[in-house]
Design a binder for these strands. Structure first.
Lengths: 218, 218
DNA sequence: TAGATTGTTAATCGATTAACAATC
DNA sequence: TAGATTGTTAATCGATTAACAATC
């Protein structure tokens, strides 16, 4: 299916396609042309066709794309039918929020355990999972071999925990900490979510927008 | 200072520069060359010099950049010295996590209020702020005029709430919902954090990495 | 068949990297 | 002054858009 290596720019757009197609399914729309989809998503038809053709010819000339088939294909490409075992490190608000995302719906992962260093949290249930004390991480990983870990812990603790997890065979990180994993582990898949970076970008946009408004007034 | 419009690619990198420079300050490093910084961050020296020169000549030939000055300059560019008033809509785990980011440190925003539709949450304190019932949103906004809103609510509720907020004069959204604000409000600054999109990209990476490993074994 | 729309190649645009003269 | 390193221009690379022949 996949024609060799696909650029990161294309992959980044796939989840959005997937979301929109899901919406079309809800509206009982059966077929859609690249032009119409582009219109709804604020893209160009060209880009959509280029993107999809990285993976194969899902469309039909003169007809367009079958919504349901395309939805399934993209899900397949993203690997959403996988069952990667995931553990969450850090049971704060962020860890709890992430637990929801991992558990619900068909997203390629299932939640195996949640760890925290706070003794007081141990045993508390999150999404049916008891919070475990971090001291049991080694034993747990050796027994259950999680595929990936979600890092919801502070910068200071991230480096050591990441090293421990790599040693224990973890094969990927969904990283919410500020620690730069990919510098130390260039070959391990890492997906970063840096809320503070996002907030700073937002700050820039708001600032620029206000500046623009002021200039237009004068 | 800023030389006209700066591309989004450059802006996206500024927070990471800012983080690294903060780290250098902690290590009491006074000056750094683009080459050395590139080395530490896994970038090219060229890119760093190009990026910084979008805003002005912060360096000195033969010497490099003054770490502290550069840190301050980037903070200035991002607008981190601003005091935009922000409200959070949705007091679930995500809303709570976001409250931490908004309140702490010098990031350009201050938290004015948290709203939720659940009656049961009303009055509960988060970061010193009582959760308010969503029914008081109109009155609150008219009285206190928040600059921006953080949307931590489900897709179903996002469209209506966004419209209400725009009507009430909110001038930017940090959007954690799946609702596509920028299609309807192209002129309002929006910064999206789509956790599920990030998770899907992560899934793709993990899947590809596993595939690679299997192929190398054979 | 005629019309619509894809898949794909070619053209354009923008971003990254390389090179080097300017200068501290 | 000589060495280092910037600021900036030019070259390269990749991503997006446009065009169009293939074909359903």
């Amino acid at each position: 299916m996949s024609k060799g290596n696909v650029s990161a720019s294309v992959i980044k757009r796939l989840p959005r396609y997937y979301r929109f197609l899901g919406g079309l399914i809800d509206q009982n729309i059966v077929r859609i042309s690249s032009g119409e989809l582009a219109n709804r998503m604020g893209l160009t038809a060209s880009q959509i066709r280029q993107d999809l053709n990285c993976f194969g010819g899902f469309g039909q000339q003169g007809y367009g794309y079958n919504v349901h088939q395309l939805y399934d294909e993209i899900g397949e490409i993203l690997g959403l039918n996988s069952h990667f075992g995931a553990i969450i490190i850090g049971a704060g608000n962020l860890g709890r929020a992430v637990a929801n995302y991992l558990s619900s719906e068909r997203r390629g992962f299932h939640l195996m355990g949640i760890f925290d260093k706070k003794e007081a949290l141990a045993g508390q249930l999150i999404k049916g999972q008891p919070v475990r004390h971090i001291s049991g991480l080694d034993e747990f990983c050796r027994a259950y071999k999680p595929d990936v870990a979600v890092l919801c812990l502070p910068y200071a603790a991230a480096a050591d925990t990441a090293e421990q997890l790599v040693r224990l065979g973890v094969k990927g990180f969904w990283n919410f900490s500020h620690y730069d994993l990919s510098l130390k582990y260039p070959d391990i898949p890492v997906e970063n979510v840096h809320l503070s970076d996002s907030l700073m970008q937002f700050c820039y946009k708001v600032k620029e927008s206000k500046k623009q408004q002021n200039e237009n007034q004068n």
